[in-house]
């Protein structure tokens, strides 16, 4: 490039700060993942219920959280919601609430799709053998659905990690936030943002490779 001198020393010197940010990102990811998983497990059966009064609210929840840009949701939960319920939210709480609810919506869909992807024939065969609903779910349907869901789960987890960057906009100390603080201190956006982008790419690529490996192992022992 024309005369730009790269100087990554500012990155090396501040690695601990960036590392703390990365930990913050991972922390939010895991917490939101956990809550999202539980939420998804709760909502999925509602979504598939025969009762309209259960299905509709579940559908509304899922559609709202899948169709609205996550940043808009984050702003709403950080700036608007606390006033509404009269509680003060720290960035951490707003971030966890938003990302958990969003993940929950996606996971509910993952569970539903996983279960519905098991062929009708399996249901009919189990019923023909006289199995009750719970037993056939436990012994026949869920084990088969599980494989498909596990892959989707990990893919969603990686997406979630990418989405955590949004929390930097409400001043939660994730990797991107620490990077921005550093840039404001040292005025070296090129090196810092490039290094941070590289860190994200490394982590996410490693995770993706892991998931693809898992996919291949599962395909080999195909149910």
């Amino acid at each position: 490039m024309n005369g730009t001198t790269w100087d990554f020393s500012v990155v090396w010197e501040n690695l601990p700060m960036l590392a703390r940010g990365l930990v913050g990102s991972l922390q939010i990811t895991f917490v939101a993942l956990l809550f999202g998983l539980l939420l998804g497990l709760l909502v999925a059966p509602l979504r598939m219920s025969a009762l309209r009064s259960l299905r509709m609210p579940a559908n509304v929840y899922i559609n709202i959280f899948r169709a609205t840009p996550p940043l808009v949701l984050l702003f709403w939960f950080f700036y608007a919601f606390p006033i509404l319920i009269g509680v003060r939210f720290r960035p951490y709480e707003a971030a966890v609430v938003t990302l958990s609810l969003q993940s929950g919506a996606f996971f509910a869909e993952v569970f539903r799709a996983g279960i519905q992807s098991v062929e009708r024939g399996q249901w009919e065969a189990s019923r023909a053998l006289g199995m009750g609903y719970l037993r056939l779910m436990r012994r026949i349907i869920l084990p088969q659905a599980f494989k498909r869901m596990v892959l989707a789960f990990f893919e969603r987890a990686i997406e979630l990690f990418k989405t955590t960057t949004l929390v930097s906009t409400i001043a939660f100390a994730d990797l991107l936030y620490e990077a921005t603080v550093l840039v404001n201190q040292t005025f070296r956006p090129l090196e810092i943002y490039t290094a941070v982008a590289a860190i994200y790419i490394l982590v996410i690529t490693a995770a993706s490779v892991g998931v693809r490996g898992l996919e291949r192992r599962m395909a080999r022992s195909d149910a």
Binding site: K162, T165, L166, T169, A197, Y200, I204
Partner: peptide
């Protein structure tokens, strides 16, 4: 494999 926000920030500042 990089977050969109990081890409936006990079293209605007870096």
């Amino acid at each position: 494999n990089s977050p969109v926000l990081v890409q936006l920030v990079w293209f605007y500042y870096a």
